[in-house]
């Protein structure tokens, strides 16, 4: 039986792990050898947007706004 977590608990877990994902994305782009290192600032900016909204989505009343924005 899988324990159901509250929305805020789930969003906090996602928020916590998102830094690792962003770091992996940046590291991957840096090492990829595709010559696209210049994309890193844009990637960080977009991921930060996503991170903030992931956190905000934990509040149920705001969730429809937040989910739809991102």
């Amino acid at each position: 039986m899988i324990r159901k977590r509250s929305r805020i608990e789930r969003q906090l877990i996602i928020f916590g792990s998102a830094f690792g994902t962003t770091a992996e994305l940046v590291r991957g782009t840096w090492r990829s050898g595709s010559g696209r290192k210049w994309m890193i600032p844009l990637i960080i900016f977009l991921c930060l947007n996503g991170l903030l909204l992931t956190l905000a989505a934990g509040v149920e009343v705001l969730a429809p706004f937040v989910y739809s924005i991102f």
Binding site: P64, F65, V66, Y67, S68, I69, F70
Partner: peptide, 14 residues
Amino acid sequence: AYLRLASAIAGIMS
């Protein structure tokens, strides 16, 4: 209905 409206507004905003 609120969710639909909120999603529609947020969709436009986003």
